[in-house]
Amino acid sequence: MKLGYHIGYWSSGPPAGALDAIRTAEELGFDSVWTAEGYGSDALTPLAWWGAATSRVTLGTNIVQMSARTPTATAMAALTLDHLSGGRFVLGLGASGPQVVEGWYGQPYPKPLARTREYVDIIRKVVARDAPVTHDGAFYQLPVQGGTGLGKPLKPTVHPLRRHIPIYLAAEGPKNVALSAEICDGWLPLFFSPKSDGFYRAALEEGFARRSGRPAEFEVAASVRVIVHDDVEQAADLIRPSLALYIGGMGAKNMNFHHDVFARMGYADVADKVQDLYLAGRKDEATAAIPTQLVEDTSLIGPPEKIRDELAAWEETVVTTLLVRGDAATLRKVADALS
């Protein structure tokens, strides 16, 4: 199983020591480095800036939010970064959720799967550069309808370094996971658990069946918290606040995809309680309501021997890469514990 380093998106500013951590990840033999965006920092600029200090690792976005850019703008960025990195770029995409899509980007959220299908199709056409790009879809039209009538189909001026840039899709629900297997080169799961492997494996197989079988290369790069610590409870305490935020506060009461992941995992009552407490402003109580077992189901925490023992279960799943976080010192501990 490969290791990747996930920088994530920024909080109030750039993460301290990010460049040192990226260089350390490459030095340790990590396979990839990933950036993200929410509604603050973007994913593409840090990847280009910090990625320039690397020479081997794959550089990926986890994720670029589709509503933030038109498909052709995203394709232009992919073409550009693929050239600058010497063919090391992977485009990770995601639909995000309605609060961000409609509240921040001012775009409609309904029918995200159909929108994703069109988005990916247009990017593929741009990168392949076989012909001037046209698209007549429900969400995107190239040239646009109802304009001046002067729009014309265009090809990118830049010739692609690779005519097929890998596209991974961030997905949590079964239909979206199946879509990643059908039209993309990889899946980016969040809050994956080995106990849910059968559920996700079935969703992926459904998508592969729609494309006449699994492709020769399909990556599953899962974001997994790894905390090397002698005390399991203290390690879990470092993760609980983030889980409380995602389960309780990321999304609305009636539409929170992260909450649904844990409900499917068998923690429906816990997820409901955490959400109720979090939305009521009782964040500390929401955090305390997360059991250690839930943390352990989706993370690797504790002494190195415990982590190595539990890694065996992950190696039996569909996951091909573990994406870990932390500073340079943390990455060294993680690499040692997982070796």
Results as ranks from 00 to 15, higher is better:
157 T>S: 13
246 Y>Q: 14
69 R>N: 08
260 D>G: 02
56 R>N: 04
117 R>G: 00
316 E>G: 07
139 F>W: 10
281 G>C: 10
7 I>W: 05
296 E>R: 15
245 L>G: 03
116 T>S: 02
33 V>L: 04
231 D>I: 08
30 F>N: 00
19 L>W: 06
33 V>K: 08
118 E>D: 07
302 G>I: 09
194 P>R: 05
97 G>V: 12
46 P>R: 06
278 Y>G: 00
100 V>Q: 00
297 D>I: 14
225 R>W: 15
204 L>E: 10
243 L>T: 00
231 D>M: 06
88 R>D: 05
219 E>P: 06
100 V>Y: 03
158 V>R: 15
43 A>Q: 06
201 R>G: 06
171 A>C: 12
92 G>E: 04
156 P>C: 12
124 R>T: 02
110 P>Q: 00
293 Q>K: 15
142 L>W: 06
174 P>S: 03
142 L>Y: 13
332 R>E: 02
115 R>W: 12
120 V>F: 04
61 T>W: 12
86 G>W: 14
42 D>H: 07
231 D>L: 10
26 E>K: 10
238 L>F: 07
128 A>P: 05
167 I>H: 04
184 C>Q: 07
279 L>H: 02
299 S>F: 08
95 A>C: 04
55 S>Y: 09
225 R>K: 12
188 L>S: 05
203 A>P: 04
231 D>R: 13
123 I>K: 08
64 V>C: 05
64 V>E: 02
260 D>S: 08
302 G>L: 07
87 G>S: 10
323 L>R: 13
283 K>Q: 03
64 V>I: 15
129 R>W: 09
275 Q>T: 09
116 T>A: 08
258 H>V: 13
316 E>S: 13
169 L>V: 10
77 A>P: 04
285 E>A: 13
331 L>H: 02
271 A>P: 11
311 L>H: 07
158 V>Q: 13
227 I>W: 03
60 G>Y: 12
272 D>I: 11
306 K>A: 09
200 Y>N: 12
9 Y>A: 06
232 V>G: 03
322 L>A: 13
182 E>S: 01
142 L>K: 09
229 H>W: 01
225 R>I: 15
85 S>F: 14
307 I>R: 02
192 F>L: 08
315 E>A: 11
272 D>C: 03
1 M>C: 07
315 E>Y: 02
21 A>K: 00
222 A>I: 03
193 S>H: 11
212 S>I: 08
241 P>C: 03
219 E>Y: 03
161 L>I: 05
60 G>P: 11
123 I>N: 03
252 A>S: 14
20 D>P: 01
163 R>K: 14
130 D>V: 01
215 P>R: 09
165 I>N: 04
93 L>R: 02
90 V>Y: 05
213 G>A: 09
26 E>N: 14
60 G>N: 04
121 D>E: 15
207 G>Y: 07
50 W>I: 13
46 P>H: 05
91 L>S: 08
33 V>D: 00
39 Y>L: 07
96 S>W: 00
299 S>D: 01
300 L>S: 10
56 R>E: 08
7 I>Q: 12
21 A>C: 04
13 G>E: 11
323 L>P: 06
242 S>P: 01
334 V>T: 15
250 M>L: 13
70 T>K: 00
194 P>S: 01
30 F>T: 03
61 T>L: 13
314 W>L: 09
157 T>Y: 14
